[in-house]
Design a protein around this nucleic acid. Sequence first.
DNA 1: CGCAATATTGACCACTCTCAATGAGGGTGG
DNA 2: CCACCCTCATTGAGAGTGGTCAATATTGCG
Lengths: 245, 245
Amino acid sequence: MLDITSIKIACSECSLSRLCLPMSLEEQEISRLDAVLKRPRPLKRGEDLFQAGDAFHSLYVIRAGTVKTFTPCEDGSEQVIGFHLPGELVGLDAIEQERHMCSARVLETSSVCELPFDRLQELALEIPSLQKHFFRLLSQELAKDETMLLLLGKATAEERLATFLINVAKRFRARGYSDKEFNLSMSRHDIGNYLGLAVETISRMFSRLQDEGVISVHRKNIVINDLERLAAMAHRSARCGSDDE
Amino acid sequence: MLDITSIKIACSECSLSRLCLPMSLEEQEISRLDAVLKRPRPLKRGEDLFQAGDAFHSLYVIRAGTVKTFTPCEDGSEQVIGFHLPGELVGLDAIEQERHMCSARVLETSSVCELPFDRLQELALEIPSLQKHFFRLLSQELAKDETMLLLLGKATAEERLATFLINVAKRFRARGYSDKEFNLSMSRHDIGNYLGLAVETISRMFSRLQDEGVISVHRKNIVINDLERLAAMAHRSARCGSDDE
DNA sequence: CGCAATATTGACCACTCTCAATGAGGGTGG
DNA sequence: CCACCCTCATTGAGAGTGGTCAATATTGCG
C-alpha cells in the first residue's frame, strides 16, 4: 500500500493520484487509473474547459493553474461556484444530468487532464478502494458546498473575505507553497461574485484589513501578516468541524 | 428492467427504490438492495436522526415526514442546510470524514430507514447500475447545493422565498400531493435560516405575497393562487438549466 | 386555563449595493 | 519608447434592502 506522499513521487506525470484525498491503492491499480487519464492539455487564460449545458463525458483534473466554475444566470450575469487549484477535480455536478451544470474557465495558463467518466466507472467496479475514493470525493464536495452555504447565509462581508483568504492560504500550503504570501489568480470581481458581495465591497474589505495590519495587499499579491487575527475575523462563520484540503 | 414507477409499487415497504432518481435495476437486484435496508424507525417531532460529529455508519432514507439538516455554529446558532421529504437520502456529506457534518432533526412524526453504508458499498461493487445510481445521486446533491449557492449569493428576499415555495410545490407534486396547497412542516425561523434571512423578513414576505394575491397564507398552510406570477418573482434567481425533484 | 413558543407588524438603523469618479496596470500600435 | 486605450481596482457619497429591537397577536400544549 502507498500513501499519498509516495504516490505523488511515483506518478508525477498525469497524477490522478494527487487527487485531494489520501488514497490507498496498489501500485498496479494506480497505473490502471493513470492509463485511463488522457494526456494533459495546456489551456490559456480565458479558455473554457466546458460550458454549462455541454454534454458530459469526462471529469477534469487540474494539474497546474486555476479554474473557476460558474453558472450563467438568466440576466446574463454569472454566479461563481468555486475556484479550483491543482489536484482538484472539476465537473462532478454533471454526472446526474449527463450535461454540465456550470461552465469551467481557466484563470491563468493551466494544464488539465481529461478523465473519461465511463472508464472511471468501470474501473471503480473492479477496484473497491477506487469506488470508495470517489464516493468520498463526492461527499467532500458536498461538505465544502455546505460550508459555503453557511458562509453565504450568515457571514458578514468581513467574515466572508477572511474565511476566503484563510481557505486559499490552506490550499496553497497543502500544495507546498507559502501560506503567508501568494498571488490570487482571480479578479476582485470573481471574488465578490463567489462570496455574494459587490466588487466595491471586496476592495473596501481588502483596504480595511490592510489598514488594520492584518494583511498587506498589492494588486493580486497578498501577504498575511497576522493569521491569528484573520482567523478570529473568520471565526464566527466557521463550521464547527475541521476542514480538509 | 423496471422504471421508477413500477418500482414504487413493487417495494412499498422499505422502498429504497423510491429514491429520488429513476433507477433501472433487475427485480432481483432490488430485493438485494432492500435486504440491506433496516426496518423503518418511527421518530417523533424534535428527535435527531444523528448529530454533527457523530460517527458515520449509515445513510438514512426518509419514508414519511420531514427532516431538516443543519450545522451548529460556534455561537450556538445554526445554519439550516436543507429540508428532506420522503424518498430523499440524508447523510451523504458524512462519507468523507466518516462522521456527520450536520445534524438531522425530525420536524414532524416521521419514518426513516437506516441504510448501512458498508453494505451499500459492497453491493455497489456487484451491481454496476447501483454504483452508477449512487454516483448520480451524489452528483444531484451537488447540483442542488450549487443552486442554493446561487440563491444565497444573488437573490433578494422575495426571490428567495418565491423560489423556495416553487421548489417545495414541485417536490409535493412529485410525490403525488397537490402543488397548489400544502402545509409547511418547518417553522418560519427554519425557513429564514435556510434562506439566509431573518424570521421577520420571512413573515413580511409572506404577507406581501398574500397582499399581492399570489399566495394565501394561513399559519403553516400555503395556497398558491398564481403560480405564474410566483415563478416570475423567482425567475431572476433561477438557474438556466432545468431542475429535478 | 395559562404559559411558552411561534408569528406578525412597526420603527429604526446598519450593512452593503449602486452610481460615479479617479487611479493604476497591461497591452497594442504608432 | 511612449502614447493611448481598456480593463481592473480603489474610493467616496447616497440609497435601499434587510436586520435588529420591541410590542402585540396567535397558536399549541401541559
